[in-house]
Design a protein around this nucleic acid. Structure first.
Lengths: 127, 127
DNA sequence: ATAAGGGTTCCAGCAACTGGAAGGTCAAGA
DNA sequence: TCTTGACCTTCCAGTTGCTGGAACCCTTAT
């Protein structure tokens, strides 16, 4: 199976798949003509990576999770630790964004948004 | 006033201030010895940039907002448009993160996190 | 024969800094 | 006076996770 087919099968762009090979996340074989040859196990890994990335894990975390996934003697505590830490990071980001949203929505609400120069948004930003 | 003083006065790291000069967001003068010389207007700009960046605006948006700030004949509609668009982007990010948080918190809650290999997190990620 | 539509590699660039190296400047203390 | 330490300068490289593009090869159909 070519990279194009693998891309369709996994939902990842070909460029991304090449990149994942480049950083050794996946190691497809090669056909005689030099084309990458993806087997089912490769596709499975790629889908795994797609899901972990979609959950916002860093590539480093994805690598660690993949290694744990393939290690039958893993301790689930290791997995949970990575996930819990990421969950904290997500919560922190949400809090940051909510603070920005709160500030900004107040400002936007009070700005007339017409042709005049008076602007509470800029007044606030200017200090 | 040196860059170190300016950094303390604005809360921005010296490296960041140099970077902002590099991309022409601010243009401090120079002393005879080659050191940057920041005036009050420079500090004011830097504080403005610090606040806009803290609200999550891209540097491109910050540049546009700064230009509007310094343009007495601006229309507040332009400012509001930029801010409203950013507000939408923030809301979208929050939604994304909340979805991740929801999925991940369920998974984390169901994982024993002990020494055994059984792991609902990995089972889910594996498909 | 050729054209379209795959595939390959490698290099550059994005955002917004940050770290570090190599070196110039300045003020204070022995 | 010399030196030490804390500044400052420039420039280059690295970060994260891809993405775009150039130049070129392979396969299949017309």
């Amino acid at each position: 199976m070519n990279i194009g087919q693998a891309a369709k099968a996994t939902g990842l762009p070909p460029k991304t798949i090449r990149y994942y090979e480049d950083i050794d996340l996946v190691r497809p074989g090669r056909d005689a003509n030099g084309y990458r040859a993806f087997c089912e196990a490769d596709l499975h890994k790629l889908r795994f990576l797609g899901r972990t990335r979609a959950l916002g894990f860093s590539v480093a975390d994805c690598r660690a999770l993949l290694a744990l996934y393939e290690d039958d003697s893993r301790a689930s505590a290791e997995v949970k630790a990575i996930a819990a830490k990421h969950l904290d990071a997500i919560a922190a980001k949400i809090a940051d964004l909510k603070a920005m949203e709160s500030t900004l929505s107040h400002l936007v609400a009070t700005c007339a948004g017409d042709g005049r120069p008076d602007c509470p948004i800029l007044e606030d930003l200017g200090g």
